[in-house]
Nucleic acid binder design. Structure first.
Length: 257
DNA sequence: ATGGTCGGCAACCGA
């Protein structure tokens, strides 16, 4: 069995207690992390070593930052896109137990009339180019992370009010869909077809978790040969009840490989 | 339509 998880930490240093407890309980083979918000010199490597994990990371001051932790040796690490802007704190690629894993923190985009939203849309075209250059849809590949897109109406609460949101606007959903069509299966959806399952609850919405007002914007996607071997996928809401909760939670998928 | 709360980091930016 191969258990993969993804988690937007929103500062890895302030969420270490959550990661420690969750990893001790769930023992994932791979944990992909986004928004570490720390420069490499200050990344808490020792904490991962103590948990029994290898870890690779690329960060910057205050914003973004990605990491991959693994029980197994991490091979062929590549940071960022091949071309400029490389966005090294947003995309990291590794190979673990022979399976390539791409962990992304896709730009959020701010507002649909903001230049950052255009940049976000182009990011998906760059991803498709990146996947085509390095991989084949006929080989095992995992794409995980905070992708900042709720793909369909059942992935948000009250979709009609979110049509102009940068995570739900029609253009970004099309870009995400086109990227899926390169050759990915939405592993969570394969196992959980129903509405109302989210990975992110906005802090600013009062009692968002209790009222289940959320977004499914974190994803685990697999190419067909790997997706065929998935046996389950779920969202673990439990860390939210702990002291200093996160706004995102852990998303998990299990593969029989 | 607007603002709500966090984290980082030292004034507001990003989400």
């Amino acid at each position: 069995m191969f258990k993969v998880a993804t988690f937007n930490a929103n500062s890895i240093r302030s969420r270490l207690h959550i990661i420690r407890r969750w990893v001790a309980k769930e023992q994932p083979d791979v944990l992909a992390i986004q928004e570490t918000k720390v420069v490499d010199e200050l990344f808490p490597v020792d904490a991962f070593r103590e948990m029994g994990y290898h870890v690779v990371y690329r960060g910057q001051k205050a914003y973004s930052g990605v990491a991959v932790a693994s029980k197994h040796p991490i091979e062929d690490v590549q940071y960022g896109f091949d071309d400029e802007p490389r966005d090294e704190a947003r995309i990291i690629r590794v190979v673990i137990k022979g399976i390539p894993v791409v962990n992304t923190y896709v730009p959020q985009g701010k507002k649909i009339d903001h230049p950052d939203y255009e940049y976000k849309l182009r990011w998906f075209a760059r991803l498709r180019e990146y996947f085509s250059r390095h991989f084949s849809p006929d080989e095992p590949l995992l794409w995980v992370g905070d992708i900042n897109v709720a793909p369909t109406e059942i992935d948000v609460t009250n979709p009609k009010t979110k049509l102009k949101h940068v995570d739900f606007h029609i253009d970004v959903r099309r870009e995400f869909q086109k990227t899926l069509e390169w050759g990915f299966v939405d592993v969570f959806r394969k196992h959980r077809p129903g509405p109302g399952e989210f990975t992110y609850w906005d802090y600013r919405v009062p009692k968002a978790l209790e009222r289940n007002i959320g977004w499914r914007i974190d994803h685990i996607l697999a190419t067909r040969p790997l997706a065929e071997k998935s046996v389950d996928s779920y969202v673990d809401r439990e860390p939210r009840s702990w002291e200093k909760p996160s706004d995102h939670t852990f998303l998990v998928a299990i593969f029989d490989v």
